[in-house]
Simulated assay, not measured.
Amino acid sequence: MDIKIFLTICVTVFLAELGDKTQLATMLFAADKEVSKWTVFFAASAALVAASAIGVLAGSLLSNYLNPKHLSIMAGIGFILIGSWTLFSAAR
């Protein structure tokens, strides 16, 4: 395992998840006094692992048909579109 790649991915995903809807939803579940915090933690962790697995599988399948450079460009355009939509929605 390449530790530099591992740390880059870990830090990038961690920063992307901070303040995300996923984190906010997890905080709401954890705020319920009747729910075990361990249950919230393990359920949220399992969901993130499953979502990451889907991302890895989709990325590996797409890389068989598309150039990685094109995938990066598509991802960048996707982020710009989502950010623009978010800004437009907030401005209304």
Rank of each mutant, 00 (worst) to 15 (best):
W85A: 13
A31I: 04
F14E: 01
I5H: 08
P68C: 04
L81K: 06
H70V: 10
G59V: 01
F14S: 06
A47M: 11
T26S: 10
A30L: 10
T86N: 14
A50G: 00
E17K: 09
W85H: 12
A75R: 05
L66G: 02
L15R: 06
L87W: 12
G76T: 11
V35N: 03
G59R: 04
L66A: 12
K69I: 09
F14C: 03
A53D: 06
F42L: 14
E17A: 08
L62R: 05
Y65W: 15
V49H: 01
L66I: 09
M74T: 05
K4S: 13
F29V: 09
V13F: 09
A44D: 05
A58H: 05
D32G: 01
L62W: 06
V40S: 03
L57Q: 00
A90T: 11
I73W: 05
I82N: 01
L7V: 00
S60H: 13
F88Y: 15
L18W: 07
I73P: 03
A46K: 02
A91K: 15
K37M: 00
F14H: 06
G78Q: 06
K37Q: 08
F42K: 05
K4D: 10
K69M: 10
S45R: 00
A51S: 05
G55S: 07
F88E: 09
W85M: 11
N64K: 15
A31K: 10
I73G: 01
A44H: 03
T22N: 00
D32Q: 09
L28M: 13
I5Q: 09
L48K: 13
L71D: 02
A51N: 04
L62G: 03
A58M: 11
A91Y: 15
W38P: 00
S72R: 13
K4T: 13
W85I: 12
V35Y: 03
A90M: 15
S60G: 14
W85K: 12
A90C: 07
E34C: 01
L87S: 08
A46W: 04
L61A: 08
F41A: 13
E34M: 08
G83C: 06
G55H: 08
A91W: 14
A44Q: 06
F14D: 01
V13M: 08
T22Y: 04
K37R: 10
